[in-house]
């Protein structure tokens, strides 16, 4: 693609200082535009990809989307290594430097306040899963209601035991949900001791793997950098502590602080 055809401005993030990224490969096209004491990390992109009409087509091109979304995150990640950032959403385009300057300039004070607040902090994601099969295996220990029915079954005639088993089967789903609620509150309380802020995201109900797991927490935490190691150690302890429910945690980060940009909302 001829560089001359790249007329649109793609913005990755803004920072308070101009990042020095010369040593990083793959950022040749990236440059920084100073706007009212802020630096916008931008590159020129082609209308073939990012015009209003063409981007709609590109979004259904999965390999293109995968490559460019990851590139968006990669570039912001590189800048995050040296500066606090306010990340922009994927595919935010300005038609000219003047247009970009107008927008960033209008909100410069809000951006600066947010950048100062986010300094020395990182966003971490935690998704917690329980293994339903494991919970059923240990249900007598985990649910007093089921334990009581089990005791009655053992002491009952075959006929009455049959009815009680059906009753047990009927309440099982409700009991598992109750266990999920109890465990998720406990996990969240433990994990939320260190972070400055948190955001709870919607739980995914889709089966993303063959394992019989249910998501019980989907959260983002804003942590001071010096607290990150302790936070991760805490999550590891929780996994060991909750072996009987097959707890697994997906802990990922540091993400650009997408969940904690509290401006312009």
């Amino acid at each position: 693609m001829n560089v001359d055809h790249k007329k649109l401005l793609y913005i990755f993030c803004v920072t308070l200082e101009e990042p020095s990224l010369q040593s990083h490969p793959g950022c040749d096209e990236l440059f920084f535009l100073e706007i009212d004491g802020l630096y916008a990390a931008i590159k020129y992109v082609s209308e073939d990809d990012y015009s209003e009409v063409n981007i709609k087509k590109r979004l259904s091109d999965e390999p293109w989307l995968d490559e460019n979304v990851r590139e968006h995150l990669r570039v912001i990640g590189l800048i995050m290594q040296v500066n606090t950032v306010i990340p922009f959403n994927f595919g935010t385009i300005y038609k000219s430097k003047e247009s970009l300057k107008k927008f960033v300039g209008a909100y410069a004070n809000d951006f600066k306040k947010a950048l100062l607040y986010l300094e020395n902090k990182e966003e971490w994601s935690v998704k917690a899963f329980c293994n339903k099969q494991k919970i059923i295996e240990n249900i007598v220990v985990l649910s007093q209601n089921v334990a009581d029915i089990e005791a009655q079954i053992k002491a009952s005639s075959p006929g009455k035991a049959y009815i009680l088993k059906k009753k047990k089967s009927d309440i099982l789903g409700k009991e598992i949900n109750s266990i999920y609620n109890t465990i998720s509150k406990h996990l969240f309380t433990c994990m939320n001791e260190l972070p400055d802020e948190y955001r709870l995201n919607a739980l995914s109900t889709e089966k993303l793997s063959e394992e019989d797991d249910d998501m019980i927490i989907n959260a983002a935490f804003l942590l001071r950098k010096e607290s990150v190691d302790t936070f991760i150690t805490c999550t590891e302890s929780l996994i060991i502590e909750h072996e009987n429910i097959g707890l697994s945690l997906e802990v990922t980060g540091p993400w650009p602080p997408y969940s904690f940009i509290n401006l312009l909302n």
Binding site: E52, P87, N89, T92, Y258, L263
Partner: peptide, 15 residues
């Protein structure tokens, strides 16, 4: 993250 969160931006072109 990169599509559904973050600054509510009014770029000249947004998704």
């Amino acid at each position: 993250r990169v599509l559904t969160k973050g600054v509510v931006i009014t770029g000249d072109i947004v998704i």
